[in-house]
Design a protein around this nucleic acid. Structure first.
Lengths: 346, 346
DNA sequence: GTGAAAGCGCTAACAG
DNA sequence: CTGTTAGCGCTTTCAC
């Protein structure tokens, strides 16, 4: 039993090797070791080889923190997932994890690291200090939600920022997102082509992305000479439990629509289940198209016709965009292509 | 147009305030500022107040990297999600994101930060250097998969490590996981009580957690005096696409079971859909219970009877365990309670 | 109570 | 090609 009073947070291990050790053993100065390790051409091949052997031997690795401090650089970016107090919904979105994975992969490829951070949606300014303390060199944020203004403020503070979502007028931060207008439109056109006469829209139009999907829905209707009816746009919250309640409420009266454009697969699934509960079958009685093409969309019963956002690309694009912003290039927004995936629900 | 040749990765901002600035303005030494900021009792209340005002004014925040370097501490932990080359399945598991969220929250509460890292499952040793370079003070790993030995090696290298999964014999790293045996057993008992006579087990028994669930399944059968039949244990991969193919293959012949214990909700959903395709209804013809209670389990048709793992606790427990390990306390493993959630599929 | 000075582990001029 | 020197931004003895 070692009398370990002091937290081992400090000084835990049997002292890991440092550059000094390598230098001493190799019989050179630390400067040379440093050069050898950063592939500087200014070092003799023989020396380099010797040093590298020793490094391997000692299992030495440079201390990134010290290196960054000295070089005044920073290769870690923050991945921020804002959450609305109370509802922790965002974090159970399968979509999100997917993006996170892609971002990590893209970052790793470029030798950057990822710090995950959770911030209350109403305190996005906390993000600024992540950057200002030098913890990270930039921020990727998922969940544009209602905070357009705060995000703009953040960007105007000089925080390199790219957010997943829709491109909004007057925004000074970069966004990367799917083609929401096309997605909404494609969904709608599909429904019309399948013979739908009264198409409902399910979603929270206040959210930038959903708003754009709604715009696409309207456009689709117009293009086919159909009338846009306010009464067929249902305001439904994003969070599963709230959405469930709202949908049940809507279906308390016999629906006057024969098709639904849902702004997420989750909403689509909730709607389908709720419809079945009141004796309506999908696609026989009501056609439904979802959005996102989450993994379960294919497995659901019936398999969901939905809009796929190619998020494999998303990570890479967001990372590249962020790196550009950090490099001072003009902030740009990218719209990723979007595809209709036809399955059975419509 | 500023002529920005050099990467702004270095030296990007208009020079953020440093401790020197605060000191100069306050007319004290940096030492005093440092003390004031770390709530040292060694500083005059008036001085402290003055300093704090200036700090707020300048919007100053300490540089964590420098602080850590000097103090030789580190308050960031790595969250590692190994992936098997090719199959990126792990990352689309809704379960995972949930845990990640909970871990971040628990860490944030304790003023720690989270670095997410993706490592090839066959190269878990890369994790060691995360620790050895001083990037992180400990590692939380999700996905025990097949790497029991590698994890043990890692732990024996002195890397503070806690992994989500089953407690295995001879393990020297800490685990936190659900009560897989009880889960498997509860699922089985439920099925028996509903009148099932031939209960199949779906899952990859090679995986530690699934193996334990299988053990619970066997125990449940035994307890009710039913025979364990090898032919009813179906080896099914975890990845959705592979699982789908395997299930279809299994159902090519008329199933000789009237119930399924699935080792994940995803598997359960896939099975239900596949059964329906060959004209078998759930729960009328076949009873199914899943595992995990993912958000969609409730929404699925039929709503899934499943085993819920209380992962809200998981994050907190894993973090606490890790901090203990870092502090040199003996490594312990925790088994979290598990509940049967009865819905319609069984 | 406060300041001066010495570093944490590393890199980058600047001289040889 | 290599070594010397001076810090990065902060904390912490040790004096006063």
């Amino acid at each position: 039993m070692k009398p370990s009073k002091r937290s081992e947070l400090e000084n835990a291990m049997p002292r890991r090797p440092q550059m000094t050790d390598v230098a001493r053993i190799a019989g050179v100065s630390v400067a040379t070791v440093s050069r050898a390790l950063s592939d500087s051409p200014l070092v003799n091949e023989t020396t380099r080889a010797r040093i590298q052997a020793i490094v391997r031997d000692l299992n030495y690795t440079v201390n990134v923190a010290a290196k960054n401090l000295r070089r005044r650089t920073n290769r870690t970016v923050a991945f921020v997932i804002p959450f609305e107090t109370g509802s922790r919904q965002a974090i159970s979105d399968p979509f999100l994890l997917n993006i996170l994975g892609n971002v990590v992969d893209a970052l790793t490829e470029r030798q950057f690291e990822l710090l995950v951070s959770r911030v209350e949606a109403s305190h996005l300014d906390e993000i600024a200090s992540l950057y200002q303390t030098g913890r990270v060199c930039g921020v990727i944020l998922i969940g544009q939600w209602h905070q357009h203004k705060e995000l703009n403020d953040l960007a105007s503070l000089g925080v390199p920022l790219v957010v997943w979502g829709g491109a909004l007028p007057g925004q000074i931060y970069s966004t990367v997102g799917g083609d929401n207008i096309k997605g909404g439109k494609d969904a709608t056109l599909r429904l019309i082509d399948r013979g739908a006469k009264h198409i409902a829209f399910f979603g929270d139009i206040e959210l930038p992305e959903v708003g754009l999907r709604y715009a696409g829905y309207a456009e689709g209707l117009r293009e086919r000479g159909m009338r846009l009816q306010r009464s067929l746009a249902f305001q439904i919250p994003f969070a599963a439990d709230l959405a469930q309640a709202r949908i049940d409420e809507i279906l308390r009266v016999k629906p006057r629509f024969d098709a639904i454009v849902a702004s997420s697969d989750l909403l689509a699934m909730l709607a389908i289940t709720a419809l079945r509960r009141i004796g309506l079958q999908v696609p026989a009685d009501v056609l439904v198209v979802g959005y996102d093409d989450v993994p379960l969309a294919r497995t659901f019963n019936p398999p969901l016709t939905t809009i796929s956002q190619h998020i494999e690309q998303a990570g890479r694009v967001m990372v590249d965009t962020l790196l550009d912003v950090i490099d001072g290039k003009a902030s740009v927004s990218t719209i990723l292509p979007t595809d209709l995936v036809v399955r059975e629900s419509a």
